[in-house]
Write a protein that binds this DNA or RNA. Structure first.
Lengths: 296, 296
DNA sequence: TTGTATGTATAGAGAATATTTATATGTTGG
DNA sequence: CCAACATATAAATATTCTCTATACATACAA
């Protein structure tokens, strides 16, 4: 009972004709005659009733077999369609995980703009969780603030979010949008703990250029810095990716300095040849300027 | 997306191992590795996640594909079982049609005794209808009193039912079970119309041996003769196959004469090689003595 | 009847797949 | 670092499938 035999039987039984079945399958008539005969012979069972050189109908056995081959080949076609559609990414699923929900949503929107029928499953977690999720194949692609140096992971830079200072608009009233060294020296800097990518990048560049705040307040959680800024405690150092549109906050920078972080997308090295992942990465190309904050 | 590729994927996905999948399918591991790779390559889609030389799991696409291949190969196995079982007649269906319901049922019982899991569909009709049903493939086997001489039909003698006389037991009181010429010459013979197989066979033999009834009453319908005999009108000429167990009737014969009809089974010549039909005919072999009337 | 169109059957050659063997590569745990 | 295990690759070989060519059978029409 080879696949070709079953398929031949199915077509012949439906068309009640070897010739028309052959046309449908793109085969010649002798091919189908032989395959059906072979199927019948190998089970010494009669499936198709031939009389006077013509097909007369199906035996009860043939009828029952046809009832099984119909859904069988329907399923086969469904499987084919699934593969075909996902091959050109006209359908499919991607599981994304990022360190910031904002960024995650923004990236999935970017991807969906290009591939509208791919379903994105979104998760988020801290850097460690993102890496773990990718390594355990729970997610297909992870987005990290920094770079993940794991031997099994391919890390691709996908965005250069600017790191800026934000403060409440009342707090900033009368102050310039670009702070001089003197002006910055009167400020309170709300910043995350040592080890934070945002913190290290900003402070390094600021120190290089001789900028020093009056004092620094360390804030543990990501959203804490922004909340503190909202409360008028000072200026928070944040990546623009972490900013949601908010008319209470305004952005200021250090005069003459632009600080950029680098976001990386990570995936399993062994999977990086996958078309889906290739397209995902292409979509988030580092020169793509579309992942900008809604602010400013 | 060849059948082998899908089957390879299905097994590998279930076992999460190329080696164990190969064992299940009775193939070698490189075969499966190649087939799955080929499947993935030809749709540039990733199905199975491999990392560090091991299978890590399925991609979302792979998972969806597996959801389709599972019922697909289940159906395929069902189809195989159907063919296999019907090949040895351990299951299946037969559509029978006979000129007499009694005979039909008796024959199907005989067949079922040998092949208990074959479902017999029973119909009956007159000779013409039986022939038509077989020619149109509405029935697989037909049972006729006489022989059907149709070029497309194979007619096989399957039974020699004796043609006897029956009368009501009160009517026969005091009469012998074998009638002499003189005794028969005082009888009323209840017999069917000219052209009836039963009539011709009985009368021919009777005349050959010089038996002549006092008078003959022609009765049109098959059951009419027996009904007339029940009513004490005389002796009905009937085939033992048409007699159902009946303690009101008794059988008598003409002294020195035994008359036999010949039943034939017919099927389409082109189908006579079918195992099912071969077995049916073998079952009703002419020397098989099991189709006897419940009477006498 | 004879010829033609239609449909099915058969056989040998050729093409396309499937499968294996042998070997390489890579990982894990002692 | 080695042994055991698992997957990957490539060339050779089997097997299966499919075709061409042809034969056979039937139905219809001239």
């Amino acid at each position: 009972m080879s696949h070709a035999e079953l398929k031949a039987f199915d077509a012949v039984a439906r068309h009640q004709s070897f010739v028309r079945a052959a046309e449908e399958l793109g085969r010649t008539q002798p091919t189908l005659t032989m395959q059906v005969s072979q199927l019948e012979k190998s089970y010494s069972a009669e499936l198709i009733i031939r009389s006077r050189g013509k097909i007369k109908g199906l035996t009860p056995l043939g009828a029952r077999l046809l009832e099984m081959t119909r859904p069988l080949f329907t399923l086969e076609r469904d499987a084919y369609d699934l593969l075909k559609d996902s091959g050109d990414l006209s359908t499919g699923e991607v599981r994304l995980i990022a360190t910031s929900p904002v960024m995650n949503i923004r990236l999935s929107q970017t991807f969906n703009a290009r591939y509208p029928n791919i379903t994105c499953h979104l998760k988020f977690g801290n850097s460690e969780e993102v890496l773990k999720s990718v390594l355990e194949c729970e997610s297909d692609l992870g987005i990290l603030g920094g770079a993940a140096n794991h031997e099994d992971c391919l890390a691709v830079p996908i965005a250069k979010p600017e790191i800026v200072l934000v403060g409440h608009k009342d707090y900033l009233k009368g102050k310039p949008l670009e702070l001089s060294r003197q002006e910055f020296a009167r400020e309170t800097l709300l910043i995350r703990e040592p080890g934070s990518e945002t913190r290290e990048l900003l402070l390094e560049k600021a120190h290089q250029h001789g900028f020093l705040p009056k004092r620094m307040v360390e804030i543990g959680r990501r959203s804490g810095a922004i909340a503190a800024a909202m409360a008028g405690m000072g200026l928070a150092a944040v990546s623009v990716h972490e900013l949601e549109p908010n008319d209470q906050l305004e952005i200021v920078r250090l005069k003459g300095i632009r600080v950029f972080g680098v976001n990386h997308a990570i995936c399993l090295k062994s999977r990086s040849k996958s078309k889906m992942l290739q397209e995902l990465l292409k979509c988030f190309d580092i020169d793509d300027q579309s992942h900008r904050s809604g602010l400013a």
